[in-house]
Simulated assay, not measured.
Amino acid sequence: MSAATSLLSAGLHYAPAVILDELGIKVTRTWLRDTWGVWSLDRRRIVIASGLSEVQERCVLAHELEHVYAGDGECSSPLAGIRQERHADLEAARKLVAISDLAAVAQWAGDPHTAAAELRVTERLLRVRLNDLRGEGWPWRPLDGSRIAG
């Protein structure tokens, strides 16, 4: 599957690890203290925490891939860093959770934990996607707290 084809796929078929491999971005797994993943622009490498579940790793790689696409490097200010992180989360969530998949799961899943597991995403990225869709009419919305901040 080429990167162009992979980009067209979304939801359950979205494979950020395949895209990173096609782009020649190395992924290294190691112990990390306070994060699950880091993108190094100057080394063209992503470092992710060892011991992540398959779902966690998929979400982290999708998030870090968005930093690659954006050309994000070291942040000049805390505000710039927050913007980069929110943008990476939003774009990753849009690719990981296709509306068609979400609609199918919403028909039967009784809670966000079950829905996230079925969609192969973390509950946090499911909340990001629901916030992106404004949550109107989607189940599980009241459990998410603020409609602005996740």
Rank of each mutant, 00 (worst) to 15 (best):
residue 44 R to P: 04
residue 116 A to L: 02
residue 141 R to I: 08
residue 117 A to C: 01
residue 39 W to T: 05
residue 45 R to H: 13
residue 115 A to R: 03
residue 16 P to A: 10
residue 9 S to T: 13
residue 101 D to N: 11
residue 91 E to K: 14
residue 88 A to L: 06
residue 112 P to Q: 01
residue 108 W to D: 06
residue 7 L to Y: 11
residue 149 A to Q: 11
residue 1 M to F: 07
residue 21 D to Y: 07
residue 93 A to N: 02
residue 65 L to W: 13
residue 117 A to S: 11
residue 40 S to D: 14
residue 80 A to Y: 03
residue 3 A to H: 07
residue 70 A to P: 02
residue 38 V to E: 06
residue 4 A to E: 10
residue 124 R to A: 15
residue 104 A to W: 01
residue 44 R to L: 06
residue 22 E to L: 11
residue 66 E to T: 09
residue 104 A to N: 04
residue 60 V to L: 06
residue 106 A to T: 01
residue 77 S to I: 08
residue 5 T to S: 12
residue 31 W to L: 09
residue 43 R to S: 09
residue 144 D to Q: 10
residue 39 W to K: 07
residue 24 G to Q: 03
residue 77 S to N: 02
residue 100 S to E: 13
residue 121 V to A: 00
residue 48 I to K: 00
residue 128 V to R: 08
residue 91 E to W: 12
residue 134 R to P: 03
residue 114 T to V: 14
residue 5 T to Q: 10
residue 32 L to D: 04
residue 111 D to T: 00
residue 50 S to N: 14
residue 60 V to K: 04
residue 146 S to F: 00
residue 65 L to I: 05
residue 57 E to M: 11
residue 75 C to E: 10
residue 81 G to V: 05
residue 82 I to W: 10
residue 19 I to M: 14
residue 7 L to W: 15
residue 10 A to K: 07
residue 66 E to W: 07
residue 80 A to S: 12
residue 83 R to P: 01
residue 150 G to F: 08
residue 40 S to M: 09
residue 28 T to S: 11
residue 39 W to V: 05
residue 105 V to Y: 02
residue 110 G to W: 08
residue 5 T to Y: 12
residue 129 R to C: 02
residue 81 G to P: 04
residue 95 K to E: 03
residue 8 L to P: 00
residue 59 C to G: 09
residue 66 E to M: 13
residue 49 A to M: 08
residue 16 P to R: 05
residue 51 G to Q: 07
residue 116 A to C: 01
residue 141 R to V: 15
residue 34 D to V: 07
residue 117 A to P: 00
residue 41 L to K: 13
residue 96 L to H: 00
residue 116 A to T: 03
residue 28 T to M: 11
residue 64 E to T: 07
residue 47 V to A: 15
residue 103 A to V: 09
residue 63 H to Y: 12
residue 5 T to W: 11
residue 139 P to A: 09
residue 115 A to E: 10
residue 61 L to F: 06
residue 95 K to N: 14
residue 9 S to Y: 14
residue 130 L to K: 07
residue 31 W to R: 12
residue 124 R to H: 13
residue 21 D to K: 14
residue 59 C to D: 09
residue 3 A to S: 07
residue 129 R to G: 00
residue 25 I to N: 05
residue 13 H to R: 14
residue 43 R to L: 13
residue 53 S to K: 13
